[in-house]
Design a protein around this nucleic acid. Structure first.
Lengths: 367, 367
DNA sequence: GGGGCTTGCACAATCGATGGTGCAACTATT
DNA sequence: AATAGTTGCACCATCGATTGTGCAAGCCCC
């Protein structure tokens, strides 16, 4: 209120304390013992810094040291539970290391990915986690040119180490689980099991590969017509289901869906029918979403092990000798109607007030 | 590959082009006409910058200009669809203005909020959107001291302009909708309608106020026992439902739930029972989640108008004369089984490949 | 009491980009 | 041809923090 002035600098503290700026700097960044600053001076400066609410200008420090203390996460998007839990977990891990997480999204667009990476580099991030990038190698090239340590997560590149889910294994287990779930009623025929969603990215390819392999093994055939790639778009997925329904007058008995984004497309289709229309449907879906797990038909989900993947990625990025190889992390099969704990459970919540009259509104509401 | 060297600077370009660093700088930052640099020199430098892959060091520029081009969003958390869509929308809006979004989360902890704000200030963010902060005024003080423009979103403060949802109005509409939905079967009695979740924050208070007002008006009474605040914790919510069930041997006929996080707590409770146990339940819930909207019982949701709130917040933060007042934005009542479009629908997806054999895996899978 | 060692700090260059100012070399004018 | 005005650019201080180096004062010892 009183002092709306600018931020304090080491020069202000220097003037106030009577020491030189370099002494102040040394005290504040902890190198003062090494520089043989006396305990007395240090205490004085620290007290002053505290009373003046000093905070170091990170841009200046970053400029001088050519590192910023920022750790970047490049994401395709925020708005689904897989990526939002990834961001949440990443944030916690970076903070635990005493650094500052910076998250940016690039919309699954190779060009935006490169530009965002350049932008992060422009801010001198110290490390970059490239997650779900459509063109990891393009981003790699930019990072390498800038001498920036980086690692791919979720989608692999060929030029940098990559930590990804074992999508093939996940696909096998998911497909098998769906088939078995259906078989409890009546054996599933090959043409009754479809896969919707997916694109030409590595994850989709691996998932498709597992799908086909298991179908062939367990059901004896694997007709191409059961493959319906619709990209990562909810609306395209809805259109695909509508087209299917218009053609066949019904849905397949069992559907594997390539991501929760596509499953949202299915919701859009669902909205046109009562729940009863789906009572015999069995769905398998990549990526776990707690609410999706409780839809009115069985939804078997594959949860990627976000904590393990990130933990591995942190190890790798710390290792200067890490090779450009792929590290697989096993995903988890989640049965229908399962509410898993998530990263939010680690946050402590305040104790709730005892119930009672708490109608003390602070804003008068326009009647 | 070849040149793993460091990043190029204006001094490199200066040497290569034969012009002075300041000329290079002027050309690259666009101020060259004002500085009467010839078209010829400009083209030369620009071509050079392009061929050398020059990108400006934002820290240096930020240091000199004392602004960074960063726009900060302080969030309590990422991992639910309300906040993740907020982050997604924020990101798009900031990018549309040609600036760089930086998102950080503070776990709904007042202390972490202040530290995160200080950290963002240390990186010289130009503007800060304080979203869902438990202690907006504490953050305000820090911002003000640093001369940083800021605005509260989602939870109001008293010292800075705030854009929030009209939670009272939302609560009234939601409560009424739930009551009417139940009444279609058989009139609801006051003690059959509960509210779970919520804390002592402004949003919870307003929601509770609306809940009580409507209950009193439509149902004639509003017993305190129907108020079950459980904070913003899934597990506490689960415990509350378990305790209720242990006591009463059933659930209330109708439940209003203060946030999707609490609804996740309800899922944890649900997992112990078959869907049939919930066939007569009616739920109203704050914040919209597409999958939650399709749970096997009617879920009426309130969707906060994230785009409108952020748009308003951007207007306000651009207005130097903005007063510390509250701006209410109407939320939207979402009927059960509704799949709304979200911010992801704005992203373009690549056209899907035609269906076919796409088993060209690039990773050999450990058999 | 003088040489040598330690203590405690100040000085100044530096990181990369910016922008105010100064000044040659031209061109136009009378 | 001398003056005035324009064009085109270079010089240099600056933003705030870091860090290699230098140096005075104090202390020890013979």
């Amino acid at each position: 209120m009183k002092r709306s002035g600018k931020r304090k600098t080491i020069y202000d503290l220097s003037a106030l304390s009577g020491c030189s700026p370099s002494t102040v700097s040394a005290v504040l960044n902890g190198s003062w013992r090494k520089r043989r600053i006396s305990e007395k001076t240090a205490t004085l400066v620290l007290k002053l810094a505290d009373s003046q609410q000093y905070t170091a200008n990170r841009q200046a420090r970053g400029l001088r040291r050519s590192r910023s203390g920022l750790v970047g996460l490049l994401l395709p998007l925020y708005d689904n539970r897989y990526f939002s839990s990834l961001a949440q977990t990443f944030e916690a891990m970076v903070r635990a290391r005493g650094e500052c997480p910076i998250v940016a999204s690039a919309s699954r667009d190779p060009r935006a990915e490169r530009e965002t990476a350049e932008s992060l580099i422009a801010y001198s991030v110290d490390e970059l986690f490239i997650c779900g990038a459509t063109d990891p190698d393009g981003v790699h090239e930019i990072c390498e040119k800038a001498g920036l340590r980086h690692v791919n997560v979720d989608l692999p590149g060929t030029r940098a180490p990559s930590v990804i889910s074992d999508n093939y294994d996940g696909a096998c287990r998911l497909t098998e689980a769906v088939i078995r779930h259906c078989a409890a009623t009546e054996p599933l025929r090959p043409e009754e099991l479809y896969i919707f969603g997916g694109r030409d990215d590595h994850a989709s390819r691996e998932r498709l590969r597992g799908f086909r392999a298991v179908k062939r093994t367990l059901l004896g055939a694997d007709p191409d017509v059961c493959i319906q790639p619709t990209g990562y778009s909810a609306n395209n997925t809805r259109l695909a289901f509508e087209a299917f329904f218009a053609r066949e007058g019904r849905l397949p008995r069992a559907i594997i869906i390539n991501s929760t984004i596509n499953l949202e497309g299915f919701l859009r289709f669902m909205a046109g029918f009562p729940d009863a229309a789906f009572k015999d449907l069995v769905v398998g879906c990549y990526d776990y979403d707690p609410f999706a797990s409780f839809l009115p038909f069985p939804v078997i989900m594959i949860r990627q092990n976000v904590e393990a993947m990130l933990a591995r990625a942190f190890e790798i990025i710390a290792d200067p000798a890490a090779a450009a190889q792929i590290h697989l992390v096993a995903p988890e099969l989640v049965p229908p109607r399962t509410a898993l704990a998530g990263p939010l459970d680690a946050l402590k919540d305040m104790p709730p007030r005892p119930a009672g009259r708490t109608t003390d509104a602070t804003v008068a509401h326009p009647a």
